[in-house]
Design a protein around this nucleic acid. Structure first.
Lengths: 190, 190
DNA sequence: TAGGAGTTTCAGAAATTTTTGAAACTTCAG
DNA sequence: CTGAAGTTTCAAAAATTTCTGAAACTCCTA
């Protein structure tokens, strides 16, 4: 591996974390390298920089493309593929969230739905189904929230993030204002 | 494996998903089994139910305890350990989020901070650092949001989830009201 | 359409992770 | 103190994942 020390530290870290993130070391390293490279890189430059086999680079790039984490560029009069990551980190975040949901959540949601359709055969199965229903309910709430929020433009999303828990206070304020507008409703109403 | 079919489907699914979630198959299966069991189970019951070795169960339970995903129970006059999962799915969600943050985010955040302290040696390093700063900024925003929101009581959190993107609209409404209030300070409220 | 530069595929090698059984350890009743 | 019941540890076997080099393929140029 032949990289500026600062970049190397970053690349190695992404390699190590790879396994915890459900991608493999090489994929992590390649992603990190592309992320911090000022120019798009072609496969051979990656081979050179990371000191891994050509075929490994090829497969890993394919994997990254599958995740939509990598963008293909072409230079004029050069038929090699060059790769970068998208510039906008918010866009990267969205992609990552979408892909992880697809791989890590959706299959479970659909298995749960399937199992919940079945008739329980005995008391234990009935209990198990009850638990699965709770899990299903929670996951559905979370994914509904996500599906809603992901449509926001970036600056709105940023606003929502900075607000954080203050949102609930805001909500109370609004309720108060609205209720004043409605002319003194009796307290203790829903 | 000797389980009611409905439970077995659930357990097998968690086993398969395990690798995508960064835990291993056995750990996933044991967790799933405990999650849907009406009573706490001891190690041997798990061996029996899943058909895996005693030692594997022992190590996997230890792992689950490390994640705080499992609760230890004792029956009177029985020195075996019995295990369950917490009842409240929201609590499970919190634990999961906390642990994943600790393992998947925090190390990266601290590596980024460290690298960002260093002096770039050349133009490429400067660029790389710039990119890392963007990543760092985004992750910090997200974790600040998380740290804030995780303190909410469950029903508030649920409210916040149902609101979703409507929050930003709410915010506009409030701004409008406030600005009207400022332009016509007649009604003199804060 | 032959040659060659570049890319992808794939079977097996290498590395890593998971699982096991046997041995060591712990705890407590007798 | 002894032994039995239960639990944990650990080295090695089994399974899985990752990586490689060689061969196959693609596409362009001449």
């Amino acid at each position: 591996m032949n990289l500026p020390p600062l970049v190397q530290a970053f690349v190695l870290h992404f390699g190590e974390m790879g396994s915890r993130w459900g991608i493999n070391r090489t994929v992590g390293q390649i992603y990190a390298l592309l992320y911090v490279s000022p120019e798009p890189l072609c496969a051979d430059q990656i081979v050179e920089a990371l000191g891994i086999s050509r075929s490994n680079v090829s497969m890993s790039l394919r994997e990254l493309q599958g995740w939509d984490l990598v963008v293909l560029k072409h230079l004029p009069d050069d038929r090699r593929d060059f790769f970068t990551t998208p510039d906008d980190v918010w866009q990267i975040l969205r992609t990552l969230a979408e892909e992880r949901k697809k791989r890590e959540i959706d299959p479970t949601l659909s298995v749960l739905r399937e199992i919940l359709m079945q008739q329980p055969g005995n008391e234990n199965e009935r209990f198990a189904q009850q638990r699965m229903a709770e899990m299903h309910g929670l996951i559905e709430r979370l994914t509904n929230w996500y599906d809603d929020v992901k449509r926001l433009e970036t600056d709105r999303l940023a606003t929502l993030l900075s607000l954080g828990s203050k949102v609930t206070k805001l909500l109370e304020t609004k309720d108060k204002i609205v209720s004043i507008g409605r002319k003194k409703p009796r307290s203790g109403e829903t």
